[in-house]
Design a protein around this nucleic acid. Structure first.
Lengths: 300, 300
DNA sequence: CCGATCCGGTGCATTATCTGCACCGGTCGT
DNA sequence: ACGACCGGTGCAGATAATGCACCGGATCGG
């Protein structure tokens, strides 16, 4: 849309921190950009950037303007999606913020299924930890969030929730593989590899360990869930993850078992959107599909 | 705002029903307007008007676009109001849809009080019956509604409610003026003047009369509450209204008394806004003031 | 049945608006 | 003190919007 150009440029200025840098990024001259900004501020009735010696910075009014722009752009997307829906074909774009655990199996399959039915819909998948996920929704950078144990929940409206027990994973020939019930203390007695503290799985582990007077002391601590899965195949170590990120195929040599409910209660995997926002048709239908898949999974 | 011009023109076309008429109204040539529309439709990706032999008409996509524009314009107003509030002075505009009963005393006083504190805020008062009031909010033509017994309540979010008993009014020397408790049947036995059926007072009267096996058969039926107040001074007749539209001054020669609660329960006067909408600072503060005044009134 | 009328759409010259270039004054880091 | 950036501005050229005249088609009135 042509008429949103000025807002887009304003956003670029805010991001770059200076008119000249933003002008370069946007492939126009600083002069033109400066004038657009000046004209906008005149029409708007107030400055939206404070001028610093080394550049510019959004003032509170500018923050409001930018937020307005993002909301408006999002709503325009919703309108276009609904219009496309009127003519039968479904078009649109869905931006998802999700935890790492959704990457290997769940999301690829869900997206492929949806795109098979509606090839006109495109996707963006943004991997975010549970703290960033809500900010991602608030700033309209993502339409949906699918995260394990998110943190604040003020702008986050829950669409669907399923419990996910923390699972221990290890190689097939690991001593723990024979146990019928897996206790937390047994896992902690072995060398273990755990996610960094910002992740929900780790938070649940730390809490549960503290309750039984133990501590999680991983031999490897990482931000990569993928690394954890591969590492336990190389050292006789115990890893921790939630089942949605793990394959139930038997031929991988990887085994996973939920940790006994006596030691730790399951966390929640939440599907959510920004509170109060109207989603586009494409996004809304995709959310329905995901919710249904999650429900089936926790039933079956 | 310059960039909303195209939307404004689109709204003008929708209102006029033809490009040429809208062009005249907007003081540009039909050619220019035609091109703007064509350009917009091209950018938007879909026609928003269906072309008829005698003009154009919005199609469903156009309805969505126009609704988007109105929401966006309203939100921009909110942003500007908040920005003005940042700099200390409060500016803005408040559009109110209200029942007739609010016109003589309540609203003028409330608006004057608010404008005394904040002269930068302007007002629009749209008199609407209870059926139109909600549509008025949904289409962003009004920010607040203050109506007696509104009808549907799907887009209407109630901010405050006070009960208002239906009152009978008559001249000071009317036979009923001496009664301590006023029964509905006494009123109906006298010649009476009543509002038209679309008004809440009349709805309550009809219901109450039906319950006691009577009928409201007014000698004069009118849409004007003002006429009712003046008419009872000329014929020994009984009028009906809610107290908020009546003066408690003794020197007018007009007397009013609530009809006994045994015959009819009070209706509700509701202050509301469109559901889910964020109001501007000016509107929000004015709503607070009105709610407070209503609360005081029903206490005192 | 047919002309008058109104409609949306289009080619072309004009006008308004925006952009790019060169340059100014000021601040910060070295 | 000097160079590197920064935001802002005057001026000329580029770009986009507008107005005018006109077309083809549909409707309405007689």
């Amino acid at each position: 849309m042509q008429y949103l150009e000025t807002f887009r440029l304003i956003e670029a200025i805010a991001r770059a921190g200076s008119i000249r840098k933003a002008a370069e990024d946007s492939n126009i001259t600083a002069s033109a950009l400066n004038r657009r900004l000046a004209r906008f501020e005149a029409e708007f009735g107030s400055q939206i950037f404070e001028r610093l010696p080394r550049g510019v910075r959004l003032n509170p009014a500018g923050e409001l303007v930018l937020q307005h722009y993002r909301a408006q752009r999002s709503d325009l997307g919703r309108v276009q999606s609904q219009v496309a829906d009127l003519s039968g074909e479904r078009r649109g774009h869905v931006a998802i913020a999700c935890s790492q655990a959704l990457l290997p199996f769940f999301l690829p399959q869900q997206i492929a299924t949806y795109r098979n039915a509606h090839p006109g819909v495109t996707f963006a998948v943004n991997v975010r930890d549970r703290e960033q996920a809500e900010a991602e929704l608030s700033s309209f950078r993502s339409d949906l969030a699918l995260v394990f144990e998110p943190m604040v929940l003020v702008d986050f409206a829950v669409l669907h929730a399923i419990p996910q027990p923390v699972c221990a994973l290890f190689a097939r020939d690991h001593p723990l593989a024979g146990r019928s019930e897996l206790r937390l203390r047994d896992c902690l007695d072995h060398p273990h590899i755990a996610p960094a503290q910002k992740y929900g799985v780790r938070g649940l582990l730390d809490m549960a360990a503290k309750r039984v007077g133990r501590k999680v002391s991983p031999v490897v601590e990482t931000e990569s869930f993928e690394l954890i899965r591969y590492y336990v195949m190389h050292e006789r170590a115990v890893g921790f993850q939630i089942p949605i990120g793990l394959s139930s195929e038997k031929d991988t040599g990887l085994v996973f078992r939920p940790i006994s409910g006596r030691d730790m209660s399951p966390g929640n995997l939440l599907l959510g959107q920004m509170r109060g926002r109207v989603l586009s048709v494409a996004t809304s239908r995709f959310a329905d599909q995901v919710a249904l898949a999650l429900a089936k999974m926790s039933d079956g």
